[in-house]
Design a protein around this nucleic acid. Structure first.
Length: 611
RNA sequence: GCCGCCGUAGCUCAAUUGGCAGAGCAGCUGUUUUGUAAACAGCAGGUUACGGGUUCGAUUCCUGUCGGCGGCUCCA
């Protein structure tokens, strides 16, 4: 399974370089080789797109056009932006060029010649790339008929090798990923070796729509978002709240068993607390304006939980014997995300983080980091997060973005890397992805559309202990500074829920499902027995409904099925007489059980949190 | 915040080139008591997101705002 993310190239050290150089290998690191035929095909399709565009829009300037997960894109400056309705014409021009069997010709030009070629064509973006990114006197270019591009290659032999492709959408994209630079028009497309694979991919996109958590959240009545409350402020409906409650119970119980201390702290604090933590200075763009009162009081909705937990740490003088101290809370965080970034439950303005802050001695750091990773692994296993990978998020060299001394960052980054390596885990590096106070290990997952998100995270922090002057008394009686580990083992409840909805397409495992059993009496005559069945299930703390509406059994089955209820217990006269239930599950298997056996079967499944 | 697209009943969608806003499902009221994925009939449901404009006439054209989707930037 490849590990790169669609449209997210240019975010790691390796791809940063190749991205700018228009390399056909925008993957994250080692997983794919530069000669990978699919990448080559897609990169060539990007050239074909640019060739078609420059024919149809003679004044258009082209930026960069790499292959990405599942396809390719190319960025253009059209003068005035085009829209999706322009894509069919571009696509048919691409097909015409493909049929014309135009070879991809590699040339190495002297720098001056290359500059002259691109100047002649009015391609200022390419001139900028040559000036900034190409060293030495040789410039590698590819020619496709009239179209010339700065490019290292490789490419397919001829345009006719590009057989199965489709343009998908247009989007704005800042030149070289900088929002202060001009915004270009990006055209996304997909390309595959065969029509069959293209069709499969388009089918996949359709199926992803059906799994989308926003659609299922509405259909299954899990959550809603309403203008009157506000964008990015989801409301958990009763069934969604039930799933969340089960998740929280599971998470909290497991953490308690692992030595975490669960606390409760308020959603606001004095603004000074965030001045001390540094958030007011370095994180203010995400913080709500403070609530200010006549007497000068300034209260701030908290963007993070750490300062509150630090205050709890400081309620007593701590001894080395108290450490490690693991303070946990599913705490609400408030972050004013820019309107354009909000997305279903994945990006919201108020969310509940499965958070904890571990205060430990430097000597305990490694074990605590490993413990946090192990906990995240355990949660992943139980919850069914089968596909994820690690990103070691480190700082870049933009000094203003980070707090603290170089050596501490090095130490923290080494600690995280060592922890992963000692556990035999491989990881990719995310340059500039660190938190402002320290590096982190992010657990990356994909949604139904294969978009990448951070779910859990483990972060090492030397800065906040310093800023808050944290201490513990060491064995020798001296005062020492603890290290902090921030970790969100199961991520935020919102993002986790969104992931699970898509992971299971709404068919949650029985332990999580809002309704574990629907009892369906065939006629009114079985209502009493149906009530007894429900009572037996409830006595084992199972969530059960009796569908005693005056509807046909077939309709009740259909509706329970649409709700993806794990078990339907159908009871007619035969079942009532035998004290049995006829069970139909989500796979439409039918089996007869005694009531007693069925109750213990489901109770066991739920207790074990079986998938 | 930026670029593109979109916004019609609770949901899914119709409504010729601008000419009386419709259907299915859901809801409500009746009838139906049923053996494994939709019983039947009736009723009700709308300031076409909101505001301005063009027009004899706007769901349709223009424009502003709000919201959603896909990207960019940013991120749990």
């Amino acid at each position: 399974m490849g590990r790169s993310a669609a449209g997210r190239v240019g975010r790691t050290e390796l791809s940063q370089t190749v991205h700018i150089l228009d390399d056909p290998m925008p993957e994250y690191g080692e997983h794919e080789s530069a000669g990978d035929p699919l990448q080559t095909l897609r990169h060539s399709a990007a050239h074909l797109l640019a060739a078609a565009v420059t024919e149809l829009y003679p004044g258009a300037a082209y930026g960069i056009g790499p292959a990405v997960q599942d396809g390719f894109y190319y960025d253009f400056d059209f003068g005035k932006p085009i829209s999706e309705s322009d894509l069919p014409a571009i696509e048919s021009r691409m097909r015409r060029l493909a049929q014309a069997d135009i070879p991809f010709v590699h040339e190495v030009l002297p720098r001056a010649t290359a500059i002259e070629e691109f100047r002649k064509r009015g391609q200022d973006y390419k001139l900028e790339l040559i000036a900034d990114k190409v060293e030495g006197d040789e410039v590698s270019v590819y020619r496709t008929g009239e179209f010339l591009d700065l490019c290292r290659g490789p490419h397919v032999r001829s345009t006719k090798d590009i057989k199965a492709f489709k343009l998908l959408r247009v989007a704005g994209a800042y030149w070289r990923g900088d929002e202060k630079k001009p915004q270009l028009t990006r055209i996304y497309g997909t390309a595959w070796p065969t029509q069959r694979e293209l069709d499969d991919y388009l089918k996949f996109l359709e199926e992803a729509e059906l799994r989308d958590h926003k659609k299922l959240g509405k259909d299954l009545k899990l959550f809603t978002v309403d203008d009157r409350v506000g964008p990015g402020l989801p409301l958990w409906l009763p069934d969604g709240a039930t799933v969340r409650r089960e998740l929280e119970r599971f998470i909290v119980d497991e953490e308690l068993a692992r030595g975490y201390l669960h606390v409760r702290t308020p959603d606001v604090a004095r603004l000074d607390l965030y001045r001390q933590s540094g958030h007011a200075q370095l994180y203010s763009e995400f913080m709500y304006p403070p609530m200010t009162f006549e007497d000068g009081e300034e209260l701030e909705l908290r963007p993070v939980n750490c300062p509150h937990h630090i205050v709890i740490y400081q309620t007593e003088l701590r001894s080395y014997r108290d450490l490690p101290m693991r303070i946990a809370e599913i705490g609400n965080n408030w972050r004013y995300e820019r309107s354009g970034t909000l997305a279903g439950l994945n990006r919201v303005r108020a969310f509940a983080l499965n958070d904890a802050h571990i205060f430990c001695t430097p000597g305990q750091l490694m074990d605590e980091v490993k413990g946090a990773i192990e906990l995240a692994l355990y949660f992943s296993k139980v919850l069914g997060i089968d596909e994820f990978w690690y990103r070691l998020s480190v700082r870049d060299d933009v000094k203003e973005k980070w707090l603290g001394a170089e050596e501490q960052w090095e130490e923290a980054q080494a600690a995280l890397a060592d922890a992963l390596e000692s556990m035999g885990q491989t990881y990719e590096r995310g340059l500039g992805e660190a938190a402002f106070y320290g590096p982190k290990i992010d657990f990356q997952v994909r949604d139904a559309h294969r978009r990448e998100f951070t779910n859990s995270t483990v972060q090492v922090d030397f800065q906040l202990p310093q800023r808050f002057e944290l201490e513990y008394v060491a064995e020798d009686g001296s005062r020492q500074r603890p290290v902090m580990v921030h970790r969100g083992a199961a991520g935020s409840m919102e993002r986790l829920f969104s992931y699970l909805i898509e992971r299971y397409a709404g068919a949650f495992p029985a332990w999580l499902h809002p309704t574990q059993v629907v009892v369906i009496p065939i006629t009114d005559a079985q209502h009493e027995y149906a009530g007894k069945v429900a009572a037996s299930l409830r006595a084992s703390r199972l969530r059960v409904e009796v569908d005693d509406r005056p509807e046909k059994m077939q309709r009740k089955i259909r509706e329970a099925h649409a709700r993806k209820v794990p078990y339907m217990a159908i009871v007619g006269q035969r079942e009532a007489e035998a004290q049995h239930v006829n069970i139909r599950d989500r796979a439409n298997r039918e089996v007869d059980h005694s009531l007693e056996a069925f109750v213990s079967m489901v109770a066991a499944e739920v207790a074990e949190r079986r998938r």
